[in-house]
Amino acid sequence: MDNILVIAQVFDGQVKKSTNATITFASRVAAFTGGSYSVMALGDDLSGQTEDLSHLGAQKVILAEAPGIDQGLGEQWVPIIEQVVRKGSFKIIASPSSSIGKDVLPRLAQSLKAGMASDVTDVSYESDNLFYVRPMYAGNVNCTVQITTETEVVTVRQTEFDPFEAIAEESPVERIDIPPPDMAVERIEFNGFEKSISERPDLPDAKIVVSGGRGLKSGENFKIIEELADLIGGAVGATRAAVDAGFIHNDFQVGQTGKIVAPDLYIAVGLSGALQHVAGIKSSKVIVAINKDEEAPIFQVSDYGIVADLFKAVPELIEEIKKTT
């Protein structure tokens, strides 16, 4: 039975990798339950993404296309997804734990009278029940939950599931009729989107992340973080303190309430390692810390540390990497 519906994350013309991680989650749930999954995308025009979506091993690719729904407002999306769920045999609805997923899925769960687990990092199956593991308390406690309603809604933490690799086989594509939006849509108007421009990899996808904290002292100084990141093909991240101080756009905040990252290499520069920040980097393979305060808590979670002034150490590091590559 086609029992799992994955809501794809499409942004800036691309099917985001978080979708592939959610597909991996769905394929695992499908194996447990003897079911299968379909993938659904919503947007103004998805012709450019259909090809990518149709190689994800899905029973079906379901496309909901309508003018003005690109922005992912819950007031628009919920009735559309709800209709697909009610007409189909879907019992588990999963989306990446992206800002759209976080915004829309709880509202969807409510309208489906379903329970929801957020930011799921693992899933298991026993006696016909699915059990979800999810982090609480800034990643200091893992909680195993069971959703007791007939329909189950989950958001999936991208970094904990390997991205599903596209397969040759092609899924059939179905375009659906769009139901009328929620009445609340009359009281919300979308005014615009300001993109935080970056040519670097997306934080949750990046193999290398270089992050700066308050120790950078200014937005101007963040350039050395960017220079290092560009040299080694990394993404740029920041602590809440650095964002609050206006050094960098909020889209780059890493931590409990920002982006969760799990690169092969995380370089923490001039940041103390507040537990809210560490919550977002814990699954990194190797953590390097550069801080002049040897007591900084970041050294307690880093694999390699350098106790030094970042304004001396980072340029030296850049030179050394250039020299040895």
Partner: peptide
């Protein structure tokens, strides 16, 4: 309730590594 808590556990902790010169 729609969600039932089954149990809690401690995630694998990271430990401090080495300081390089």
């Amino acid at each position: 309730q729609r969600v039932k808590t089954i149990s809690y556990s401690r995630p694998a902790a990271r430990s401090g590594g080495i300081i390089l010169e």
